[in-house]
Design a protein around this nucleic acid. Structure first.
Lengths: 256, 256
DNA sequence: AACGTATTTTAGTACGTACTAACTTTTCTG
DNA sequence: CAGAAAAGTTAGTACGTACTAAAATACGTT
């Protein structure tokens, strides 16, 4: 969108920095890429947003000027408190919109991500809160992702992925990535949805298919798909395998 | 919004010109300003959009290049067939969104215009059609404005304004401008809403207040407000008074 | 027809955002 | 530790969109 919005003069009001939609997207991407102590890398941000790394460098400087991120040259970027607040509100919007579209307008759960991605920048706080209220203030979206509160609190527990469960382990599906509709349909076809109970029956060598029991039915799942499913439960073993930033190969270059 | 969207290369596909939100706004403004044979003037477009006339000149050239408008230098602008189609779809979106917000999310009718103004650019066709379906495919929005169909048909009858009714005349309120919340509250407070039945009891000289009976109760209305209320009915006399373009002094310069 | 006013366009500038190409810094690996 | 690969930055450009100031055109009036 961006109306020109003459970058310079912004009323020094505490909050309300009048961000463009793009800027918000950067903040959200950084939020999702930062983990614990690791700052978000420029390339990771670029590939998540589907734009060139050089473009990201530029925007990060702007965001730094606005006090929304801290950047250490060549070293990575992390959100400041106020950047984090913006990101969390955007995520709140996104997840409430997804929930609303599924519950009230009959959208399929694999079909709401893109819609929410656009609406989250256009919806007013009033609209979001009305939707939330109408839904009974849900705490998780249709993919199991926790919804930040108005005050910016969110459940930040990290779960292990289904791909890293040991053979024999049992767990409950907590959430899954919502960024790829094909993946969601693949998972739905196998009964994998938030709340489902899974048990790993066997795994093939060389990253072969994983055989699991899902709510008592036996199913085969590719490790790539399983890597995007997070589970919690008794025996969620860890074997992390550093796949940071690689969840969902969404480096699909923007349309152009 | 505008992602850069490198203006040049657009797949020559029949439709789907991938317009920016701003461009859509121009088309809508031109649609609303054109009447019959009169082309929309640059200044009128500028003041409706709250931007400088010079900026409009530039954009109109771009829209002309895209085949969405015809411009005759120094003479005015009108939509081409495809520009008109875009405008009508945008208006459909706007009015369905307004209807939905009022009927399903409890918004006040004077509070939906700005929200719709933003959402109309972000909502997918699928979302709009789901909303429309959920509402039972309404044909008018909460302010009485007709909703264009998916095929781009719309009731284009022009009604006389309440301000131009003769003393003694009776009419039914058909619609009113939705662009000014204060106006809408003013009208609502006087019982003026689509479908209400009005009779002009008397009018003061020098553009003084108009006394009307609204659904049997007697009320006073300022001529400026009455000019933004359109009525149909037996004795809707004409006395047109050329107020074209002046409905709602919305030249409020954009926030900056 | 001539003048003044209103309308519209051009010229020049700014900013957000993106791109490619070339360069720099960091990190990995032999 | 040296060289290569990976990651990140700068430089230069483009485009959409807006602005102000100045010039051009149209129109209404005497």
């Amino acid at each position: 969108m961006s109306r020109a919005e003459p970058g310079g003069r912004r009323h020094a009001a505490q909050q309300a920095p009048e961000l463009t939609g793009q800027a918000e997207d950067y903040l959200k991407a950084i939020y999702e890429l930062e983990q614990g102590d690791a700052a978000a890398g420029t390339n990771a941000v670029a590939s998540r947003l589907g734009i060139a790394a050089a473009s990201v460098s530029g925007m990060l400087q702007r965001l730094a000027r606005l006090g929304l991120v801290h950047t250490e040259r060549y070293r990575g970027t992390r959100l400041t408190e106020s950047g984090r607040a913006v990101a969390l509100q955007l995520i709140r919007r996104h997840r409430i919109i997804e929930s609303y579209l599924v519950s009230r307008l009959g959208f399929a759960w694999d079909d709401v991500h893109d819609e929410a991605e656009r609406l989250e920048h256009a919806a007013s706080t009033e609209l979001i809160e009305r939707m939330a209220h109408d839904l009974g203030n849900p705490t998780a979206d249709p993919h199991g992702a926790p919804i930040p509160t108005v005050e910016g609190k969110v459940d930040e527990r990290r779960f292990g992925s289904l791909a890293s469960l040991e053979v024999g382990a049992t767990a409950r599906v907590s959430r899954m990535s919502d960024r790829d509709a094909t993946l969601l349909r693949y998972l739905a076809a196998r009964g994998i949805r938030p709340g489902a109970s899974v048990r790993v029956v066997s795994r093939e060598a060389f990253d072969g298919p994983i055989v699991v029991t899902v709510d008592r039915k036996q199913r085969t799942i590719s490790p790539a798909a399983a890597a995007n499913v997070w589970v919690e439960g008794e025996a969620a073993a860890v074997h992390t395998k550093r796949s940071a930033g690689a969840s969902g190969r969404s480096s699909a270059r923007r349309k152009r």
